[in-house]
Design a protein around this nucleic acid. Structure first.
Lengths: 367, 367
DNA sequence: TTGAAAGCGCTAACAG
DNA sequence: CTGTTAGCGCTTTCAA
């Protein structure tokens, strides 16, 4: 057995000032450097005793593997890329946080690659993809549904996972949540409070979640035996201003809704602003709900009832899939899709309908 | 001269499916692979004719250098790290955008490393720093003023540039803007409109910009021969809610201000909300200004008069400094600090004071 | 179960 | 000005 006294020479750098290498660890542990490599990569065929000795030596020397060398020799960069063209900074912020957390645990780093929404995908993407050396790419909506982008990535031979994609479910692994059912539950919440006249503001049709959230809303209304007037469904652009404008249209309806379900928080904030300007107080005169549980949803006054999307968890799961696939080699992707749970967050912006909302005229019927 | 017919063999991959290497390019150009390396790295001592031939061959073969190999051999990772604990997603978003743009141009990628504001810097940082192989690190406020973090980074031997640091100007290069003068100009704008009773909402003292912005405000007021009542300076936390609360205190002053200068946009939005709830319309009854030119500043109604910070430009400049320093070798940092220009953006939230703001009582004097 | 040899693709030092 | 020779630190054969 080797002399373990050598292990006491601690420190992240050797005496000559260079970084500790696998060979230093091997020497300290009294084994060949290949054995150290085996231990590091969790390969089989290493005696437990030796494995422990190597681990101990690595620890004592403050050894950290050189990523560049691992990449060059083994083809793994220990980098995950995050590609997005989503204008919502808070969404991207959460995606990043979730991805980073998991990356750190696994010794990976996260590279960000924002794309301008207007970019010519082909022209911008190819140079980026050819330079980018990542073990996998995470794509968020809406770019995850852009066929030009997907083609370019596949052509470059880069493995990827999509967050909440809208179509081509079989094309690549994805992580998502059930938007339709979340919207359904939110609508149930309003119905249970006693609301019958519920306005809905949907998002832009370019965004996949738009249709799913509307579907959940309509399903809940249908099941409750309610028909939704044409004017009760307005289109927004997921922005504060568009929510404000849509709310103004909603408030001008012959029968004013007693609740407005905006399909994201930014629009819901616009709704609250419009209500306030119209002299309506939330939730006494009108209930407002959002979708996202963004930062401003908590800053609003009153705080917004909304759906908490597991955004960080989704990107964390995406990293897991990527790393796992990488470890298993480069075969065809196993199907590893994951559906995560959302959460209905009830706060101050919803309440039972007050007496002040008149409801007299007959309602128009939707289509 | 070598046969240039070979150059027609285009494509990013060789026939055997592996990536095109420097040797393939050398062969196609009829030179040694070291010469290709010289051309790639813009080293001197290459005949123009040969340089062109090599470039052409590289282009034709779709050659892209292998970053891992360059890193391993040359010690440059072509990665820039961005470290932050700033809770403002929009600020970070802009920082990232600016940094990425410049990184792409120079063939670099950007790694993001968020730190939780509450993190034990030592414990979290050391493992991150030892694994991180970047050619330089960008630090944003407030982490760029955290001595524990700075110590850890310097100990790890990583070069860094700070964005808008608050102290230790000589410790490392930085990029910043003149917050004090921007606040001065904003105050001048209000004074020029005819406002005399201007309330100011400062940020948390933990944030370096807070003192600088207040200083600019006070200087402009002083130069105009105005004294600022004690109650006219309120403290906020750079959040919507804190701005709203501060505005309520301001509006309760014996002499109600005719203008409120909030030292960031989020607080200004809270101010507008509070004014609206108090039955005051902006800008007829009261002018409101922010600082940042954030997304919500444009979404607000009316749109906010504010200061556009060159956030993206600052991070782009930081990348420049880092890359330039890297190219020049690892000597002591040259002083390369940069001060960038801000811009006063006048929009709908400011106007001359209306007739409705009474001004009768004598004012208290500030300290 | 372990070890020795042979590169990965590039840059750094030295020769010519 | 250009080419040759050595590695960078690690993983991957393959042999023991």
């Amino acid at each position: 057995m080797a002399d373990t006294a050598d292990l006491d020479i601690a420190g992240a750098r050797r005496l000559d000032g260079r970084q500790t290498t696998i060979k230093d660890v091997a020497q300290a542990a009294g084994v060949s450097f290949k054995t150290v490599s085996r231990v590091l990569n969790q390969e089989p065929n290493v005696r437990a005793e030796i494995r422990d000795r190597v681990r101990q030596a690595a620890e004592a020397l403050g050894y950290v593997p050189n990523v560049a060398a691992r990449d060059l020799a083994g083809g793994r960069s220990f980098l995950i890329g995050l590609m997005f063209d989503n204008p919502s900074e808070s969404y991207i912020g959460k995606i990043q946080t979730g991805a980073i957390t998991r990356c750190r645990d696994a010794g990976y780093s996260l590279i960000v690659e924002p794309l301008e929404p207007g970019d010519d995908a082909r022209r911008t993407l190819d140079p980026i993809l050819s330079r980018l050396r990542v073990d996998g790419l995470i794509l968020t909506p809406p770019i995850c549904d852009n066929p030009v982008v997907l083609d370019a990535i596949e052509r470059a031979g880069v493995r990827y996972v999509r967050i909440a994609p809208d179509r081509d479910a079989d094309r690549a692994p994805f992580v998502t949540m059930d938007d339709a059912h979340a919207a359904y539950e939110m609508t149930r919440h309003l119905l249970t409070l006693g609301h019958l006249d519920i306005g809905f503001i949907k998002g832009p049709s370019s965004h996949g979640a738009t249709a799913r959230r509307l579907e959940g809303f309509l399903r809940a209304m249908g099941e409750a035996g309610l028909t939704v007037p044409v004017g009760y469904i307005q289109v927004g652009a997921f922005s504060f201003q568009s929510g404000m404008a849509a709310a103004e249209r909603l408030l001008a309806e012959p029968v004013r809704p007693t609740a407005i379900f905006a399909s994201n928080d930014d629009m819901a904030l616009g709704v609250m602003w419009a209500c306030s300007r119209a002299g309506l107080s939330v939730p006494t005169d009108i209930s407002v709900t959002g979708f996202d549980d963004s930062e401003p949803a908590r800053m609003a006054w009153p705080q917004l009832t909304t759906i908490r999307q597991p955004i960080a968890d989704m990107s964390a799961a995406a990293v897991d899939i990527l790393i796992e696939a990488g470890a298993k080699g480069r075969g065809p992707e196993p199907v590893a899709n994951r559906w995560l749970d959302y959460e209905l967050i009830v706060r101050g912006s919803t309440a039972a309908p007050g007496a002040r909302s008149p409801r007299v005229e007959p309602r128009k019927t939707n289509s």
